[in-house]
């Protein structure tokens, strides 16, 4: 297990290093600069500004400095917001994104598990078809389409919830969280249904029944845990999906989160924010996938005790 973790950590660092390098050089190669395009500066003024941001030095030196700062957790300064550190900007906007993401994930996965269980325990009934329909719709309809319709009906037409912005406390987080939850909901319900159907037809379920266990005991004491454990494996892709979703959802609902800032910085060519956020997202996802793998090893006794030959 220790050997496996070491290997995974090394891969994590290689991956992150490659992403950082690729991001840096791609940014360097991008057409247009925020300074030259955004302001009408004289060549001498431009030189001063470039010097301030270290843009006058040769690219390899800039790269070296960038990587060194990165190791310290410093993502540089924003071009757009004068003297604002990118790291600080990200940290400042972490809150709303975190609240939406975790609420969406918990809501989606919980309801998804329930729907999946119902579908598997009531196979080929109206319950099953209904929950399958919800899952298919949830997987198929992009979150931004779903979000816009939520906004239109719940916000504009009925006025139940705030249409947008982060001003009404928790209420502001409800609609965006629901919109984000659709993906995890659909994934979890489909996953749990498939797993449960397979588990319910397995020999050890027949054995449990032959012991005299009731239908409820069979479903929850024996089958549920076995169907639930593999769900951990889709948490990584789910987190990636939530991140993707957050870009558009925060945009639609004008939430001051990281995703909204990222989209804005793309529009305004704010390289250091794009780079910083890209690296932050990458690090987040890499860590999530790693944690999920380790977690799976911990909660599944088969892997936990055999030492993880994976």
């Amino acid at each position: 297990m220790a050997k496996y973790i070491t290997r995974r950590v090394i891969y994590m660092f290689i991956t992150f290093f490659l992403i950082a390098t690729a991001t840096f050089f791609l940014m360097k190669a991008l057409p247009g600069s925020p300074i030259s395009s955004a302001s009408k500066l004289s060549p001498s003024q431009l030189a001063i500004v470039e010097a301030k941001y270290g843009l006058d030095e040769p690219v390899p030196v800039q790269y070296g400095k960038y990587m060194l700062n990165l190791a310290k957790g410093d993502l540089g300064n924003s071009f757009q917001f004068k003297n604002a550190s990118v790291t600080e900007l990200i940290v400042k906007r972490l809150g709303p994104s975190f609240i939406l993401g975790s609420q969406g994930l918990i809501l989606g996965v919980t309801i998804g598990i329930m729907l999946g269980m119902i579908a598997a325990l009531r196979q080929n009934t109206i319950w099953d078809y209904g929950s399958t329909l919800i899952a298919i719709v949830g997987i198929s309809i992009p979150s931004f389409v779903f979000a816009t319709f939520l906004q239109y009906w719940l916000g504009v037409k009925w006025g139940i919830l705030p249409v947008a912005l982060w001003k009404d406390g928790w209420l502001s987080s409800v609609m965006p969280s629901i919109a984000l939850a659709m993906g995890p909901l659909a994934t979890a319900s489909r996953f749990i249904r498939t797993e449960m159907v397979e588990v319910l037809s397995s020999d050890y379920i027949t054995l449990a029944k032959s012991k005299g266990a009731s239908g409820f005991e069979v479903a929850f004491k024996h089958a549920f845990r076995n169907a639930l454990i593999p769900l951990v494996t889709v948490l990584g892709p789910l987190a990636a999906g939530l991140l993707t979703g957050s870009l558009v959802i925060e945009q639609i609902f004008a939430i001051p989160g990281i995703g909204e800032q990222f989209v804005k910085s793309i529009m305004s060519n704010d390289y250091s924010i794009i780079m910083g956020t890209t690296l932050f997202f990458s690090a987040f996802l890499i860590v999530v996938i790693f944690v999920v793998d380790i977690l799976y090893g911990i909660i599944d006794p088969r892997i936990r005790l055999s030492g993880g030959n994976n």
């Binding site: 397995s202 020999d203 050890y204 027949t206 054995l207 449990a208 024996h222 845990r225 076995n226 454990i229 599944d300 006794p301 088969r302």
Partner: peptide, 8 residues
């Protein structure tokens, strides 16, 4: 091999 619950 399959008739015991693997997680219990």
């Amino acid at each position: 091999m399959t008739s015991l619950n693997p997680t219990m």
